[in-house]
């Protein structure tokens, strides 16, 4: 497979084409992914999430700088929302990372959510594999950052940085509501702003309520100012230690296993739905079913159960 081979060689243009192939759900997508799959699993994947204006892109820019000093090849997937009305999008995250535009070992790909909820795009998972197979050592996913539904990044990343800033107000509410589960490491950015210390104390308090006494298992909190390039070294050291910790304790392996489980479930569901759709011609029949429900007062469960029974029966006969 020509495109796949070029991706494996790290050919920049081909990586770009491969990601587009996935984004546009082209027919050759499945073959491409399966071709690359055996070469995946080497890269470390970090998710960066947090509300808009938290300084995620600037923070990522500074992380790239540190990782490049260590000689690592870094791939970034920065997700921005698509307009629900036009389907278009402005992808502006890389603006803050343009420092690295001349560096061949930094690959930034902006991705529109294209209607997918959960803070990432449908194509994000497979795009990670492309970077992984192409030999990137570290892959950073920057989520949209619209709030509390951004849990999907947990399923894709080995560890998640939850970026918080003082003055937003609603963050603590989110923490209390359980969103804290998303983060492995808590980053309090804009530490030079008023209220940063207070936020630190609040986060610490919320985490203490929910966590064990064992210090080692506690989620770290790091203060940074991405704009002033302060606290970044602490953050890098912190997630490096964290990687070591989850590697040694099999946590990483479990996470990755869980990721495959999710992936199997996901692909399976998609495939089944699409098969059933095709078999039952749902698109054609949907109007009839609506009529059945509206006029003949058939309940939706009754109707669907009947259709599925029929599907299984016919399927067996085949």
């Amino acid at each position: 497979m020509e495109l796949g081979d070029k991706v494996l060689k790290g050919h920049i243009r081909s990586i770009g084409k491969a990601i587009s192939c996935i984004e546009n759900n082209r027919p050759e997508k499945e073959q491409l992914i399966d071709y690359l799959y055996p070469f995946c699993g080497k890269a470390e994947v970090i998710g960066v999430t947090g509300s808009p204006g938290a300084g995620k892109s600037t923070l990522v820019d500074k992380l790239i700088k540190r990782e490049r000093k260590l000689g690592k090849k870094v791939g970034i997937i920065a997700v921005d929302p698509s307009s629900p009305f036009s389907g278009g999008a402005i992808l502006g995250d890389r603006l803050r990372m343009q420092n690295h535009a001349s560096d061949d070992d930094v690959y930034i790909r902006s991705m529109a959510s294209r209607g997918h909820l959960g803070g990432i795009a449908t194509a994000t998972a497979d795009a990670i594999k492309i970077f992984d197979a192409a030999g990137f050592d570290l892959i950073i996913i920057e989520t949209i950052g619209v709030g509390q539904t951004e849990i999907e990044v947990m399923d894709l990343a080995d560890l998640v940085l939850l970026v918080l800033v003082p003055g937003m107000g609603d963050e603590i509410q989110a923490l209390k509501a359980g969103i804290m589960e998303i983060g492995d490491i808590y980053v309090i950015n804009k530490k030079d702003h008023d209220g940063a210390q207070k936020l630190y104390a609040e986060v610490e308090y919320v985490l203490n309520i929910n966590q064990s006494e064992n210090d080692k298992e506690k989620n770290p909190i790091i203060l940074t100012s991405a704009n002033l390039d302060e606290g970044i070294d602490d953050l890098v050291k912190c997630y490096r230690d964290y990687f070591k910790y989850i590697r040694c304790n099999n946590i990483l392996e479990e996470k990755r296993k869980k990721r495959i489980v999710n992936e199997i479930n996901h692909i399976f569901t998609e495939k089944i739905i699409s098969e059933v759709n095709q078999f039952l011609h749902i698109e054609k029949k949907i109007n009839q079913w609506v009529k059945n429900i509206l006029h003949e007062k058939v309940g939706p469960y009754t109707l669907i159960n009947k259709k599925i029974e029929q599907f299984i029966k016919e399927f067996k006969e085949q």
Binding site: G16, A89, L91, A101, R109
Partner: peptide, 21 residues
């Protein structure tokens, strides 16, 4: 889908961005 680079881009960085994206 629009990717915006911001100011002061060299031809090299523009082309690299275009290819990556």
């Amino acid at each position: 889908e629009v990717i915006y680079t911001g100011l002061r881009q060299t031809p090299e960085s523009i082309v690299k961005t275009a290819i990556q994206e």
